[in-house]
Write a protein that binds this DNA or RNA. Sequence first.
DNA 1: TATTGTTATACTCTATAACTATA
DNA 2: TATAGTTATAGAGTATAACAATA
Lengths: 158, 158
Amino acid sequence: MSDPVEPITAERAFARGFADRLPLLVNQVGYQMAGRAEPRLAELGLNGKTYMALAVLVADRPGSQLELARLMGSVAAVIVTVADNLEAEGYVERTRDPADRRRSLLTVTPAGRRALAKADRIAAEVEDDMLGHLDGSERARLHATLRGALERGPRAVP
Amino acid sequence: MSDPVEPITAERAFARGFADRLPLLVNQVGYQMAGRAEPRLAELGLNGKTYMALAVLVADRPGSQLELARLMGSVAAVIVTVADNLEAEGYVERTRDPADRRRSLLTVTPAGRRALAKADRIAAEVEDDMLGHLDGSERARLHATLRGALERGPRAVP
DNA sequence: TATTGTTATACTCTATAACTATA
DNA sequence: TATAGTTATAGAGTATAACAATA
Protein backbone atom coordinates (compact mmCIF):
# COMPACT_ATOMS: atom_id res chain seq x y z
CA MET A 1 0.00 0.00 0.00
CA SER A 2 0.97 3.64 -0.52
CA ASP A 3 3.10 2.66 -3.50
CA PRO A 4 4.28 5.83 -5.26
CA VAL A 5 4.29 4.28 -8.73
CA GLU A 6 0.72 3.01 -8.32
CA PRO A 7 -1.49 5.92 -7.29
CA ILE A 8 -4.64 3.91 -7.95
CA THR A 9 -5.95 2.57 -4.67
CA ALA A 10 -6.23 -1.11 -3.94
CA GLU A 11 -9.92 -0.94 -4.81
CA ARG A 12 -10.62 -3.17 -7.75
CA ALA A 13 -11.31 -1.42 -11.01
CA PHE A 14 -14.20 -3.77 -11.63
CA ALA A 15 -15.94 -6.53 -9.75
CA ARG A 16 -14.58 -10.05 -10.21
CA GLY A 17 -18.14 -11.24 -9.81
CA PHE A 18 -18.59 -10.26 -13.46
CA ALA A 19 -15.54 -12.07 -14.72
CA ASP A 20 -16.87 -15.47 -15.75
CA ARG A 21 -20.48 -14.50 -16.39
CA LEU A 22 -20.78 -13.34 -19.96
CA PRO A 23 -24.27 -11.82 -19.69
CA LEU A 24 -23.12 -9.66 -16.77
CA LEU A 25 -19.97 -8.67 -18.65
CA VAL A 26 -21.86 -7.73 -21.80
CA ASN A 27 -24.41 -5.73 -19.86
CA GLN A 28 -21.73 -3.91 -17.95
CA VAL A 29 -19.77 -3.02 -21.07
CA GLY A 30 -22.95 -1.85 -22.78
CA TYR A 31 -23.89 0.18 -19.74
CA GLN A 32 -20.47 1.80 -19.66
CA MET A 33 -20.62 2.64 -23.34
CA ALA A 34 -24.10 4.11 -23.03
CA GLY A 35 -23.07 6.17 -20.03
CA ARG A 36 -20.16 7.64 -21.94
CA ALA A 37 -22.07 8.30 -25.13
CA GLU A 38 -25.35 9.69 -23.82
CA PRO A 39 -24.08 13.04 -22.47
CA ARG A 40 -22.41 13.75 -25.80
CA LEU A 41 -25.39 12.59 -27.85
CA ALA A 42 -27.51 14.98 -25.78
CA GLU A 43 -25.55 17.89 -27.27
CA LEU A 44 -26.91 16.82 -30.65
CA GLY A 45 -30.45 16.54 -29.32
CA LEU A 46 -30.17 12.76 -29.46
CA ASN A 47 -30.17 9.88 -27.02
CA GLY A 48 -29.43 6.20 -27.43
CA LYS A 49 -32.87 5.40 -28.79
CA THR A 50 -33.08 8.24 -31.30
CA TYR A 51 -29.51 7.59 -32.45
CA MET A 52 -30.42 3.96 -33.01
CA ALA A 53 -33.56 4.99 -34.87
CA LEU A 54 -31.63 7.31 -37.20
CA ALA A 55 -29.13 4.54 -37.92
CA VAL A 56 -31.87 2.03 -38.69
CA LEU A 57 -33.86 4.51 -40.79
CA VAL A 58 -30.85 5.17 -43.02
CA ALA A 59 -29.56 1.60 -43.23
CA ASP A 60 -32.77 -0.43 -43.31
CA ARG A 61 -35.32 2.01 -44.77
CA PRO A 62 -38.37 0.77 -42.87
CA GLY A 63 -41.66 1.56 -44.63
CA SER A 64 -43.61 2.41 -41.49
CA GLN A 65 -43.16 3.22 -37.85
CA LEU A 66 -44.21 -0.31 -36.98
CA GLU A 67 -41.47 -1.75 -39.15
CA LEU A 68 -39.00 0.59 -37.48
CA ALA A 69 -40.25 -0.69 -34.13
CA ARG A 70 -39.68 -4.28 -35.19
CA LEU A 71 -36.18 -3.57 -36.44
CA MET A 72 -35.29 -1.83 -33.19
CA GLY A 73 -36.81 -4.57 -31.07
CA SER A 74 -39.34 -2.10 -29.72
CA VAL A 75 -43.07 -1.44 -29.90
CA ALA A 76 -45.27 1.05 -31.71
CA ALA A 77 -46.06 3.24 -28.73
CA VAL A 78 -42.39 3.84 -27.99
CA ILE A 79 -41.60 4.70 -31.59
CA VAL A 80 -44.18 7.48 -31.51
CA THR A 81 -42.09 9.32 -28.94
CA VAL A 82 -38.87 8.53 -30.79
CA ALA A 83 -40.34 9.90 -34.03
CA ASP A 84 -41.74 12.93 -32.19
CA ASN A 85 -38.30 13.75 -30.82
CA LEU A 86 -36.53 13.29 -34.16
CA GLU A 87 -39.18 15.40 -35.88
CA ALA A 88 -38.87 18.16 -33.26
CA GLU A 89 -35.10 18.30 -33.89
CA GLY A 90 -35.71 18.49 -37.62
CA TYR A 91 -33.92 15.19 -38.19
CA VAL A 92 -36.85 13.38 -39.83
CA GLU A 93 -39.98 14.37 -41.69
CA ARG A 94 -43.17 12.46 -41.08
CA THR A 95 -45.55 12.05 -44.00
CA ARG A 96 -48.47 9.74 -44.56
CA ASP A 97 -47.93 7.00 -47.11
CA PRO A 98 -50.18 7.96 -50.08
CA ALA A 99 -50.64 4.26 -50.89
CA ASP A 100 -51.84 3.45 -47.38
CA ARG A 101 -52.71 6.50 -45.38
CA ARG A 102 -52.48 4.61 -42.10
CA ARG A 103 -48.71 4.39 -42.45
CA SER A 104 -46.26 7.11 -41.55
CA LEU A 105 -43.17 7.43 -43.71
CA LEU A 106 -40.15 8.70 -41.81
CA THR A 107 -37.57 10.31 -44.07
CA VAL A 108 -34.25 11.46 -42.70
CA THR A 109 -33.46 15.09 -43.50
CA PRO A 110 -30.00 16.40 -44.46
CA ALA A 111 -29.70 17.72 -40.90
CA GLY A 112 -30.58 14.25 -39.69
CA ARG A 113 -27.81 12.74 -41.76
CA ARG A 114 -25.33 15.24 -40.38
CA ALA A 115 -26.45 14.46 -36.84
CA LEU A 116 -26.10 10.74 -37.53
CA ALA A 117 -22.57 11.26 -38.82
CA LYS A 118 -21.65 13.18 -35.68
CA ALA A 119 -23.26 10.53 -33.48
CA ASP A 120 -21.29 7.86 -35.32
CA ARG A 121 -18.11 9.76 -34.53
CA ILE A 122 -19.08 9.79 -30.85
CA ALA A 123 -19.78 6.07 -30.97
CA ALA A 124 -16.39 5.44 -32.59
CA GLU A 125 -14.64 7.46 -29.89
CA VAL A 126 -16.44 5.59 -27.13
CA GLU A 127 -15.39 2.36 -28.82
CA ASP A 128 -11.79 3.59 -28.88
CA ASP A 129 -12.05 4.51 -25.20
CA MET A 130 -13.06 1.05 -24.20
CA LEU A 131 -11.33 -1.09 -26.83
CA GLY A 132 -8.11 0.81 -27.30
CA HIS A 133 -6.25 -2.25 -26.09
CA LEU A 134 -7.37 -4.23 -29.14
CA ASP A 135 -5.72 -4.18 -32.54
CA GLY A 136 -7.73 -3.93 -35.72
CA SER A 137 -8.16 -7.62 -36.34
CA GLU A 138 -9.25 -8.28 -32.77
CA ARG A 139 -11.79 -5.52 -33.06
CA ALA A 140 -13.08 -6.90 -36.33
CA ARG A 141 -13.43 -10.29 -34.68
CA LEU A 142 -15.45 -8.77 -31.83
CA HIS A 143 -17.71 -7.06 -34.35
CA ALA A 144 -18.26 -10.31 -36.21
CA THR A 145 -18.90 -12.23 -33.01
CA LEU A 146 -21.56 -9.82 -31.81
CA ARG A 147 -23.21 -9.64 -35.22
CA GLY A 148 -23.34 -13.41 -35.25
CA ALA A 149 -24.97 -13.44 -31.84
CA LEU A 150 -27.71 -11.10 -33.06
CA GLU A 151 -28.26 -13.05 -36.25
CA ARG A 152 -28.98 -16.22 -34.30
CA GLY A 153 -32.54 -16.78 -33.21
CA PRO A 154 -35.45 -14.40 -33.12
CA ARG A 155 -35.58 -11.31 -31.01
CA ALA A 156 -38.12 -12.09 -28.31
CA VAL A 157 -37.46 -8.93 -26.31
CA PRO A 158 -39.76 -5.93 -26.73
CA MET B 1 -39.19 -14.55 -52.64
CA SER B 2 -41.37 -17.50 -51.63
CA ASP B 3 -38.38 -19.80 -51.65
CA PRO B 4 -39.39 -23.19 -50.22
CA VAL B 5 -36.00 -23.88 -48.66
CA GLU B 6 -36.03 -20.51 -46.88
CA PRO B 7 -39.22 -20.31 -44.84
CA ILE B 8 -37.99 -17.22 -42.98
CA THR B 9 -39.58 -14.16 -44.53
CA ALA B 10 -37.57 -11.51 -46.26
CA GLU B 11 -37.74 -9.44 -43.08
CA ARG B 12 -34.26 -9.00 -41.73
CA ALA B 13 -33.46 -10.88 -38.57
CA PHE B 14 -31.78 -7.79 -37.22
CA ALA B 15 -31.30 -4.23 -38.31
CA ARG B 16 -28.24 -3.47 -40.42
CA GLY B 17 -28.20 -0.09 -38.75
CA PHE B 18 -26.50 -1.84 -35.84
CA ALA B 19 -23.90 -3.60 -37.91
CA ASP B 20 -20.97 -1.18 -37.84
CA ARG B 21 -21.76 0.58 -34.59
CA LEU B 22 -20.24 -1.35 -31.76
CA PRO B 23 -22.04 0.44 -28.92
CA LEU B 24 -25.39 -0.34 -30.53
CA LEU B 25 -24.36 -3.93 -31.12
CA VAL B 26 -23.19 -4.43 -27.56
CA ASN B 27 -26.33 -2.88 -26.15
CA GLN B 28 -28.52 -5.01 -28.34
CA VAL B 29 -26.76 -8.23 -27.41
CA GLY B 30 -26.93 -7.30 -23.74
CA TYR B 31 -30.59 -6.47 -24.08
CA GLN B 32 -31.29 -9.80 -25.74
CA MET B 33 -29.41 -11.70 -23.07
CA ALA B 34 -31.21 -9.88 -20.27
CA GLY B 35 -34.57 -10.50 -21.91
CA ARG B 36 -33.88 -14.21 -22.11
CA ALA B 37 -32.47 -14.54 -18.61
CA GLU B 38 -34.87 -12.39 -16.58
CA PRO B 39 -37.99 -14.58 -16.83
CA ARG B 40 -35.99 -17.58 -15.64
CA LEU B 41 -34.22 -15.65 -12.89
CA ALA B 42 -37.66 -14.57 -11.69
CA GLU B 43 -38.44 -18.21 -10.88
CA LEU B 44 -35.57 -18.06 -8.37
CA GLY B 45 -36.81 -14.79 -6.89
CA LEU B 46 -33.97 -12.97 -8.63
CA ASN B 47 -33.57 -10.36 -11.31
CA GLY B 48 -30.53 -9.04 -13.13
CA LYS B 49 -29.54 -6.70 -10.32
CA THR B 50 -29.93 -9.16 -7.46
CA TYR B 51 -28.14 -11.85 -9.45
CA MET B 52 -25.29 -9.44 -10.06
CA ALA B 53 -25.25 -8.52 -6.37
CA LEU B 54 -25.04 -12.18 -5.28
CA ALA B 55 -22.18 -12.75 -7.70
CA VAL B 56 -20.27 -9.72 -6.46
CA LEU B 57 -20.93 -10.51 -2.79
CA VAL B 58 -19.43 -13.99 -3.21
CA ALA B 59 -16.54 -13.04 -5.48
CA ASP B 60 -15.51 -9.64 -4.11
CA ARG B 61 -16.64 -9.76 -0.47
CA PRO B 62 -17.53 -6.07 -0.09
CA GLY B 63 -17.41 -4.86 3.52
CA SER B 64 -20.43 -2.57 3.32
CA GLN B 65 -23.43 -1.83 1.15
CA LEU B 66 -21.63 1.22 -0.18
CA GLU B 67 -18.72 -0.89 -1.33
CA LEU B 68 -21.14 -3.27 -3.01
CA ALA B 69 -22.69 -0.26 -4.73
CA ARG B 70 -19.31 0.87 -6.01
CA LEU B 71 -18.43 -2.60 -7.30
CA MET B 72 -21.75 -2.82 -9.12
CA GLY B 73 -21.46 0.67 -10.55
CA SER B 74 -24.52 1.71 -8.60
CA VAL B 75 -25.44 3.97 -5.70
CA ALA B 76 -26.32 3.43 -2.06
CA ALA B 77 -30.05 4.05 -2.38
CA VAL B 78 -30.43 1.38 -5.05
CA ILE B 79 -28.48 -1.16 -3.03
CA VAL B 80 -30.92 -0.79 -0.14
CA THR B 81 -33.67 -2.24 -2.33
CA VAL B 82 -31.36 -4.91 -3.73
CA ALA B 83 -30.37 -5.97 -0.21
CA ASP B 84 -34.00 -5.83 0.92
CA ASN B 85 -35.00 -8.21 -1.88
CA LEU B 86 -32.15 -10.63 -1.25
CA GLU B 87 -32.89 -10.60 2.47
CA ALA B 88 -36.59 -11.24 1.85
CA GLU B 89 -35.70 -14.29 -0.26
CA GLY B 90 -33.40 -15.55 2.50
CA TYR B 91 -30.37 -15.24 0.22
CA VAL B 92 -28.39 -12.82 2.41
CA GLU B 93 -28.32 -11.88 6.09
CA ARG B 94 -27.84 -8.27 7.04
CA THR B 95 -25.91 -7.55 10.24
CA ARG B 96 -24.31 -4.39 11.53
CA ASP B 97 -20.53 -4.35 11.54
CA PRO B 98 -19.51 -4.48 15.24
CA ALA B 99 -16.36 -2.49 14.44
CA ASP B 100 -18.34 0.31 12.75
CA ARG B 101 -22.00 0.14 13.46
CA ARG B 102 -22.85 2.39 10.52
CA ARG B 103 -21.94 -0.40 8.12
CA SER B 104 -24.17 -3.30 7.12
CA LEU B 105 -22.46 -6.61 6.47
CA LEU B 106 -24.20 -8.70 3.85
CA THR B 107 -23.42 -12.40 4.16
CA VAL B 108 -24.68 -14.86 1.57
CA THR B 109 -26.63 -17.77 3.06
CA PRO B 110 -26.38 -21.38 1.84
CA ALA B 111 -29.70 -20.83 0.07
CA GLY B 112 -28.16 -17.76 -1.54
CA ARG B 113 -25.24 -19.82 -2.81
CA ARG B 114 -27.59 -22.41 -4.25
CA ALA B 115 -29.61 -19.69 -5.97
CA LEU B 116 -26.42 -18.18 -7.37
CA ALA B 117 -25.39 -21.57 -8.76
CA LYS B 118 -28.76 -21.95 -10.45
CA ALA B 119 -28.59 -18.42 -11.82
CA ASP B 120 -25.13 -19.14 -13.18
CA ARG B 121 -26.54 -22.15 -14.99
CA ILE B 122 -29.21 -19.92 -16.54
CA ALA B 123 -26.55 -17.42 -17.58
CA ALA B 124 -24.50 -20.20 -19.17
CA GLU B 125 -27.51 -21.43 -21.11
CA VAL B 126 -28.30 -17.94 -22.36
CA GLU B 127 -24.69 -17.62 -23.43
CA ASP B 128 -24.98 -20.93 -25.32
CA ASP B 129 -28.18 -19.71 -26.95
CA MET B 130 -26.51 -16.63 -28.35
CA LEU B 131 -22.95 -17.83 -28.85
CA GLY B 132 -23.51 -21.39 -29.98
CA HIS B 133 -21.85 -20.48 -33.27
CA LEU B 134 -18.53 -19.90 -31.50
CA ASP B 135 -16.01 -22.57 -30.56
CA GLY B 136 -14.35 -22.60 -27.16
CA SER B 137 -11.33 -20.51 -28.08
CA GLU B 138 -13.45 -17.85 -29.75
CA ARG B 139 -15.63 -17.68 -26.69
CA ALA B 140 -12.62 -17.38 -24.43
CA ARG B 141 -11.36 -14.56 -26.62
CA LEU B 142 -14.67 -12.74 -26.31
CA HIS B 143 -14.55 -13.10 -22.54
CA ALA B 144 -11.03 -11.72 -22.42
CA THR B 145 -11.92 -8.85 -24.72
CA LEU B 146 -14.87 -7.76 -22.62
CA ARG B 147 -12.94 -8.11 -19.37
CA GLY B 148 -10.24 -5.95 -20.86
CA ALA B 149 -12.78 -3.31 -21.81
CA LEU B 150 -14.04 -3.13 -18.24
CA GLU B 151 -10.55 -3.02 -16.76
CA ARG B 152 -9.70 0.06 -18.80
CA GLY B 153 -10.56 3.39 -17.27
CA PRO B 154 -12.78 4.19 -14.34
CA ARG B 155 -16.44 3.51 -14.26
CA ALA B 156 -18.08 6.91 -14.52
CA VAL B 157 -21.60 5.55 -14.80
CA PRO B 158 -23.82 5.38 -11.73
C1' DT C 1 -18.05 17.44 10.59
C1' DA C 2 -18.12 13.23 7.70
C1' DT C 3 -19.92 8.78 6.51
C1' DT C 4 -23.43 4.81 6.17
C1' DG C 5 -27.65 3.46 5.54
C1' DT C 6 -32.38 4.74 4.87
C1' DT C 7 -36.47 7.17 3.34
C1' DA C 8 -38.97 10.36 0.36
C1' DT C 9 -39.83 12.40 -3.88
C1' DA C 10 -39.75 13.39 -8.40
C1' DC C 11 -38.63 11.91 -12.84
C1' DT C 12 -37.98 8.89 -16.64
C1' DC C 13 -39.02 4.49 -19.03
C1' DT C 14 -41.76 0.98 -20.18
C1' DA C 15 -45.88 -1.85 -20.89
C1' DT C 16 -50.67 -2.24 -21.69
C1' DA C 17 -54.64 -1.14 -23.18
C1' DA C 18 -58.02 1.92 -25.22
C1' DC C 19 -59.11 4.95 -29.09
C1' DT C 20 -58.92 7.03 -34.24
C1' DA C 21 -58.45 6.66 -38.88
C1' DT C 22 -57.82 4.10 -42.55
C1' DA C 23 -58.07 -0.29 -45.05
C1' DT D 1 -62.81 -6.99 -39.15
C1' DA D 2 -57.99 -5.87 -39.09
C1' DT D 3 -54.08 -2.74 -39.07
C1' DA D 4 -51.11 1.74 -38.17
C1' DG D 5 -50.66 5.24 -35.37
C1' DT D 6 -51.78 7.72 -31.27
C1' DT D 7 -53.05 8.68 -26.55
C1' DA D 8 -53.70 7.53 -21.66
C1' DT D 9 -52.45 5.33 -17.66
C1' DA D 10 -50.33 2.68 -14.56
C1' DG D 11 -46.06 0.40 -13.03
C1' DA D 12 -41.13 -0.17 -12.63
C1' DG D 13 -36.93 1.70 -12.38
C1' DT D 14 -33.59 5.61 -11.35
C1' DA D 15 -31.67 9.83 -9.49
C1' DT D 16 -31.57 13.30 -6.00
C1' DA D 17 -31.83 15.07 -1.92
C1' DA D 18 -33.03 15.02 2.91
C1' DC D 19 -32.66 12.51 7.27
C1' DA D 20 -31.05 9.40 11.37
C1' DA D 21 -27.44 6.95 13.45
C1' DT D 22 -22.74 6.47 14.12
C1' DA D 23 -18.02 7.77 13.72
